[in-house]
Design a protein around this nucleic acid. Structure first.
Length: 243
DNA sequence: CCGGTTGTTCAGCG
DNA sequence: GCGCTGAACAACCG
């Protein structure tokens, strides 16, 4: 589930429970949940890969990491980390990281760095990137303080689409190329969202997990690139190396 | 059946 | 204190 667009889809799927009263709660999370019964969920929000369940004076931050899953009106054959039952259904979260935080998400999150948010601020991303010249472009795209919500798949596809080699350094990109990278990080995230909802995400991958470059048909390369060392697929012929 | 991973945090080291 | 490395987490697919 992990990349930002998938978390937005989860938020939409849970809309029927927004404003509803919790009738029953359980789960093996270590955070306090025993006071939720009879409390109303004020809102479900997202910030990048963070899924937020908001109550009046506090919220839960759920992070799915690599293996987290959820079921709505269904159960898996495993103990949920958190389960919430409402009059009109239930939601179950598995193998995720949960934190309970006092206050409002507005006190903690900068919505302008979330690539899926209405508040997304491309100019702010550009400013942050200009301050980190030596950073590799693959690492820059995975930096959640700049591109909150971007994950490894989006990173691969963005770099291929805009023809930038994943070993490039951010500071070596011409201004036009840097702006293109920022624009495409958001743009591809919305394509990811649309394709995921249509169950055709994998079908639309151009380079991620591909053996050949779809543009020039030569074998694609792969490597564990940058400080983040995440598996990266690319075309040595089509993607230009800067720096 | 083993290898790999849509991710993050933290301990331990030099 | 810093940057770097690798472990931990413990599911699921092919």
């Amino acid at each position: 589930m992990p990349e930002g667009p998938s978390i937005v889809i989860l938020k939409e799927e849970l809309k029927p429970f927004k404003g509803k009263k919790v009738l029953e709660v359980s789960g093996d999370t270590s955070v306090q949940i025993d006071d939720l019964v009879n409390m109303k969920v004020h809102d479900f929000r997202t910030w990048g890969k963070h899924f937020l369940i908001c109550f009046k004076n506090f919220f839960f931050r759920i992070h799915f990491l690599l293996w987290g899953t959820y079921r709505i009106n269904e159960r898996k054959d495993a103990t949920p980390r958190l389960s919430l039952r409402f009059k009109n259904g239930e939601v179950n979260f598995y193998t995720c990281s949960i934190r309970r935080i006092e206050g409002s998400p507005d006190d903690f999150y900068d919505w302008e760095s979330d690539v899926m948010a209405d508040e997304w601020n491309a100019a702010k991303a550009e400013k942050k990137l200009k301050e980190m010249k030596k950073v590799n472009v693959s690492d820059a795209l995975l930096n959640q303080e700049i591109f909150s919500g971007v994950g490894n798949i989006i990173k691969n596809e963005v770099l291929f689409r805009i023809k930038i080699h994943p070993e490039s350094s951010t500071g070596a990109l011409p201004k036009r190329k840097l702006k293109e990278m920022i624009k495409e990080a958001r743009n591809y995230s919305f394509d990811f969202y649309t394709w995921k909802k249509a169950f055709e995400l994998k079908k639309n991958w151009l380079i991620y997990k591909k053996k050949k470059c779809p543009r020039c048909n030569i074998p694609s390369e792969k490597g564990y690139i940058g400080k983040t060392k995440r598996l990266t697929f690319f075309c040595n012929n089509c993607q230009a190396l800067f720096g």
